[in-house]
């Protein structure tokens, strides 16, 4: 079985571990990820100005190209997923804009491409994963951090309940680890404000990590490379700003899955984690 795959820029640069571990996971369950040929950036962040059609061109062209290959495309990066899905929704609602844009492009798009997140794929193919789990992560207490982009706006993304989502937790259970709920899992990490207002990003990420820890989480899992950066890379500064803060390892969901599926360590990209994951993984006998 083959799945069409759109990695997005960051998975080839700063988020390589997400890319390699995801490949390892799909490899282990016998699915080939067929990368979309000649893809480019989705534009990151969906434009919120209703009169800005330029920003729709990049997502539209990606969707059109993907559609030439297959009816659905797997998008692991939360930002790309959100941008493509919102653009798709908008173009379906506003056929007039779609027609205008189509007129100016080489490609032509009809609005029917399905944008799929790996977590949705695993939700719909739970047995596939469950049967391939080799290592028990039973004692790993995982806090599933959704962030904003997988959940909102609900009407357009239709991923899960935006206030009390469970898809991530179910995923974590199916690979044998223990999901721990924490109420700030649906709040914002600070996103791109890390560029302009690093303090804002630092404080919001700190707040939600503390909330996770307070509920007994000993590893945080996410699917977004930007959330990942804010939660992982900013911890050093958090320790400076809040001396009582204890660092906590952050993983991509695919790293956790790859661990459970017994993938080779070199594919996990754990060495790129800023907060060392090795202590906890050794403690639970996972490496």
């Amino acid at each position: 079985m083959k799945l069409q795959y759109y990695p997005g820029c960051t998975l080839y640069t700063k988020a390589k571990p997400l890319n390699t571990s995801l490949h390892a996971c799909f490899n282990a369950v016998g699915i080939e990820l067929a990368e979309l040929p000649h893809w480019y950036c989705c534009g990151t962040t969906f434009t919120l100005a209703r009169d800005n059609r330029m920003s729709l061109i990049a997502p539209l062209r990606i969707l059109a190209k993907a559609q030439q290959e297959d009816g659905k495309v797997l998008v692991p990066c939360s930002i790309c997923y959100n941008t493509l899905k919102r653009a798709n929704y908008m173009l379906n609602e506003d056929r007039e804009t779609l027609d205008i844009l189509n007129e100016h492009l080489e490609e032509s798009y009809d609005g029917n491409e399905i944008v799929l997140h790996p977590l949705e794929f695993f939700r719909d193919n739970e047995e596939l994963v469950r049967s391939k789990v080799k290592k028990s992560l039973k004692d790993l207490k995982v806090g599933c951090y959704y962030g904003c982009l997988l959940l909102r706006p609900q009407q357009e993304i239709q991923f899960d309940d935006p206030e009390a989502p469970t898809i991530f937790e179910n995923f974590i259970s199916s690979v044998g680890a223990t999901p721990i709920d924490f109420p700030l899992k649906v709040e914002c990490c600070g996103s791109y404000l890390v560029v302009t207002s690093p303090d804002a990003a630092l404080e919001s990420s700190y707040k939600l990590l503390r909330n996770a820890q307070g509920n007994g989480v000993n590893a945080v899992v996410t699917s977004c490379p930007l959330c990942y950066y804010n939660l992982d890379a900013l911890q050093e500064k958090m320790t400076k700003a809040h001396p009582d803060f204890k660092q906590i390892p952050v993983f991509y969901f695919s790293q956790i899955l790859a661990l459970a599926l017994g993938a080779e360590e070199k594919n996990l990209g754990l060495e790129q984690n800023k907060v060392s994951p090795y202590t906890i993984l050794k403690e639970y006998d996972l490496l």
Binding site: T10, K14, V194, L226
Partner: peptide, 10 residues
């Protein structure tokens, strides 16, 4: 250090 998507978004 920052991931590209942070910069492009900003």
């Amino acid at each position: 250090d920052a991931p590209p998507l942070a910069l492009i978004s900003a």
